[in-house]
Design a protein around this nucleic acid. Structure first.
Lengths: 202, 202
DNA sequence: CTGCAAAAGTTTCTCCTGTAAACATGGAGG
DNA sequence: CCTCCATGTTTACAGGAGAAACTTTTGCAG
């Protein structure tokens, strides 16, 4: 009888429930203009309850962004893990995973890189972002060690490839990679072009 | 005596004045969280006056974004105009101009590519963005004609280079191109890497 | 010149939001 | 059993978005 209670006073895990509601709204609306009150309402809780878990609305948004970076990291890691013929192929897989993630979670991805997810305020968010960025960095370093990538400053490779992947993701989200405008497989095409410049075998 | 009137009832060009105030606030705050009422207040006008010129707050934001695209286009065009030894050099100049513009107008640049500047709603904004994008496209086509760039689908070149430039701009704005992280000249380095893949001379 | 319609501003009003403060409740430890 | 504290709720208030109704100019037709 404690199973389907009629809203116990204490929710159990309201923090998580609020995050889930907000993530759902973000996914549906593809923006984060939702109000905190609406999130509370949909979670079936009073409009002030969220403040017991988040100092303000922006703190919730940063939490969502943080989760986004963790999930993106997982997605990229999974995509890279299968046996790959080359580091270059692994790079393409990771990049496509990132772009795919952005395409399937456009609202979340945009939030992650918006000024509402201010990484200078929230160390946890900053760390989550850096950790995900670290996946790319690790791959580039590995590629340099095994002779796949040019022996330039790894940071230069990182800037170029991160910019490229993030840029493609944003274009994809904005539906600016339509076939008639940009060919049938713009992402691999663009990645290959950059890789031709990054790799030793040019 | 009609020169320095004491706030005539009719402002003269309130629309322009509101835009200027909003642009100034955008530049100072580096975000567009300002309220329409605050814009009205600073322009010295009642809080409902803006509605005579903009249907709602978002319409003003789209107007700002539109202006941003026009200015960015001008900046890039100016940067490309001087005599250049090669189309490739011209490309680098235009790209750097774009990134410089973003760095000097971070708030505006972010707004231009945010979901608050929805190009599917506002044809004028869409056109402004497309017109600026067209500068890049023209340059790439010229480069293909003169043999600078590979004879692949121009749209593939466009996707790759637009992604790269926009990605670098976003990284620059987020102060993620710090010298200790990414070398002393990350922008030219990254651009050159992509160009090595885009150009025929590889 | 007069009169008037429309443009451009202002006032007023309603509904909603964020957030603070004070109050209620229920579960865990003494 | 009692009491504390985290977690919820209610109440309250300062603002904002935007609609509606009212006022001032201005441009123009006669």
């Amino acid at each position: 009888m404690s199973e389907i209670k009629d809203r116990p006073y204490h929710h159990g895990d309201l923090r998580r429930a609020l995050i889930d509601t907000a993530l759902a709204m973000l996914a549906v609306d593809q923006n984060w203009t939702f109000t905190l009150r609406e999130v509370a309402r949909r979670t079936g809780v009073s409009h002030a309850a969220p403040y017991k878990h988040f100092r303000d609305r922006e703190m919730l948004l940063r939490e969502l962004a943080s989760i986004g970076f963790v999930r993106l990291g997982e997605t990229m890691t999974e995509a890279m893990s299968p046996a790959m013929p080359s580091t270059r192929a692994q790079f393409v897989a990771a990049a496509q995973a990132c772009i795919g993630f952005a395409y399937q979670n456009p609202g979340l991805y945009r939030l992650m890189f918006s000024s509402d997810a201010d990484k200078t305020i929230d160390p946890q968010l900053h760390d989550a972002a850096m950790s995900t960025f670290g996946i790319l960095l690790g791959l580039l370093e590995k590629g340099q060690r095994d002779g796949s990538f040019r022996p330039v400053a790894v940071s230069a490779l990182a800037a170029a490839s991160w910019a490229q992947v993030h840029g493609l993701a944003m274009l994809a989200i904005s539906h600016q990679l339509l076939e008639e405008k940009v060919g049938s497989a713009p992402v691999p095409a663009a990645l290959d072009m950059l890789l031709d410049g990054m790799c030793c075998t040019d």
